[in-house]
Design a protein around this nucleic acid. Structure first.
Lengths: 120, 120
DNA sequence: TATACTTATGAATAGTTGTTCATATGTTGC
DNA sequence: GCAACATATGAACAACTATTCATAAGTATA
């Protein structure tokens, strides 16, 4: 990460200098905002959000998620991997069956928040 | 939108029938989940989230946003259009200058929520 | 070990998306 | 009207992403 990545600001084209200075000084670090975008990316796909929404009800195995969403096992498995890598869900194995569940309460809160915004 | 779109469920391949029935009965409508995904899509791109984060501080004109983010005017304008179409931001014109600001408090809350999840 | 079953994964593909470039639209002051 | 400035927009392109298909990996049971 280059040193110029942090709040470099040469004022080129700026119209309201004070506003820009203030706003920039209040920004979270670039890296945080990038992580934030990555987090929300998980919720930005219908298949993934449907999976997460299902898991709010209960932990579920891959076959059940696949059936509930009327999708292919492969598609679900791929999306589960993405969600797991982002640490939004976790898995446990019981014999042949792998159960997935939400990693923490934040997922519920984020979805609830979004629903609230939409249905206002 | 086809009639089969709502909670159709033929039980094909299901392992834990009760769990699936319960989860499906608790799901928000398909359309709501799709809208939810669309909402979060806005926050899933670095440029857009940086814009939104800037606007938390203050309303800003296009030129200032462009300078603050070290981007091209065109790129910013395109993203502003997307955010406006999603009703996350609004604009007012003052002469040549167009000022953008957050449409409501929800944007702040959603970003704060996300940051909390990341920095825990 | 052989078979059946559940889940995971790699490659290929089609669809989506963000940026750039060029240019249009809208506004002010002369 | 015209020049200068701020913003918007359309087309083209590159990069990314979700799904499908085929198949592998892991597990239980006979």
């Amino acid at each position: 990460m280059k040193p110029e990545d942090e709040i470099e600001f040469n004022g080129e084209g700026v119209i309201h200098e004070e506003v820009v200075r203030k706003a920039l000084s209040e920004q979270p670090a670039e890296e945080l905002l990038a992580d934030l975008a990555d987090l929300f990316k998980n919720f930005s796909d219908t298949t993934r959000i449907r999976i997460l929404s299902l898991l709010i009800s209960d932990e579920m195995c891959v076959a059940d998620i696949t059936a509930a969403l009327n999708a292919t096992q492969s598609a679900i498995s791929h999306q589960l991997r993405i969600l797991k890598q982002s640490r939004l869900i976790k898995s446990r194995r019981a014999g042949k069956i792998v159960y997935y569940s939400l990693a923490d309460e934040h997922v519920k809160t984020i979805i609830a928040m979004g629903l609230e915004h939409i249905t206002e």
